[in-house]
Amino acid sequence: MDGAAPEPSSEELARRARAGSKEAFGALVERHEASLLRFLRPFAPSAEDCEELAQEAFVRAWRKLEHYDPAQRFSAWFFTLARNLAISRLRVRRPDVQGAHGVQGEAALAAVAVECDPAVQAARREAGESLWALADRVLTAEQRQALWLRYAEDLSAEEIGAVLDKRAVAVRVLLFRARENLQQHLETRPPGGARAASAAGAGPAGDRWRALEALS
């Protein structure tokens, strides 16, 4: 029998953090850092900006923990808070962004995506990108975020809708189109290209692309 105690859930950690435990909050930061950085990527033109935004989101979460209801999924609450923060920062940086939601929010995300360095994107492409890097390249920001919240955070359509300020039906459509779009790009990818050559080597990237080859 395994004597190791099971890891506490994020909700339990948040409950402890709310009672004042900075250690528990530190565990939450470690657990959600990678996911948050990817989620916030569309809002920040550079990795440094993204990390700064993520740090601010964590600090704000600490300050607002008293408003968190442990009955709610922590990641849903936290990503909502982070997205609202990111949009408010975006509005400060780009005064033409008037609203935080809907079409204006999408336009703001698209504007930031354009600001990303194309050379970096091209380098990623050449380097044998991962499935999520491909998603970065071919999906809209909202599609990527919805897809990430679904497959990395296991949130329901309703929870994703709460984070992205959309109705559950709209989230289902968003996810369907994201999957469809991703699937099309995987199917039209030329077999045996430079990436396939690199994927032939050992390592998780090679395994990943071999698995995706089977889709087409």
């Binding site: 850092e33 996911s35 740090q55 497959y151 990943r208």
Partner: peptide
């Protein structure tokens, strides 16, 4: 397979991430 691949890729991306914000957040807190 796409769902499986997306989940696996997400798990890999998180596993490969080197935590670097925890110290900064702790200092801010």
């Amino acid at each position: 397979p796409l769902s499986t691949a997306l989940r696996r890729a997400a798990a890999e991306e998180r596993a490969q991430h080197t935590p670097r914000l925890a110290a900064r957040v702790a200092a801010a807190l």
